[in-house]
């Protein structure tokens, strides 16, 4: 691909495939679960509330995905949380619960 074209794309920030993938992920989730985007937002908030009861979630980061293999759909929730270590009672950063 031509170099000048890349430079142009860098400044316009246009790699449109990523927009396509994100939008597709949204509609597929809606279609597969039958949940509207409002339902999804409510689900997200409820999940955040439940997880926050036990853990501290960093920047309210919560990644919800549906993974389809064969005939089953798996719900995958990925979130970085701070956990209390046994010794200190201090918050320590830990990577993702799944």
């Amino acid at each position: 691909m031509v170099f000048s074209k890349i430079i142009k794309k860098i400044f316009s920030g246009s790699f449109s495939k990523y927009a396509a993938k994100n939008r597709l992920q949204m509609v597929l989730t809606q279609d597969r679960t039958g949940l509207s985007s409002n339902d999804m937002e409510a689900f997200r908030k409820d999940l955040l509330a439940v997880i926050s009861t036990y853990f501290v979630i960093e920047n309210n980061q919560l990644d919800i995905q549906w993974d389809k293999k064969d005939n089953t759909t798996a719900l995958i929730i990925n979130t970085p949380v701070m956990v209390r270590t046994v010794t200190g009672g201090k918050m320590k950063k830990a990577v993702g619960t799944k």
Binding site: I6, F15, S16, K17, Y18, L24
Partner: peptide, 8 residues
């Protein structure tokens, strides 16, 4: 696809 404008 190569220029990031089509899903691979």
């Amino acid at each position: 696809v190569k220029q990031g404008d089509m899903i691979a």
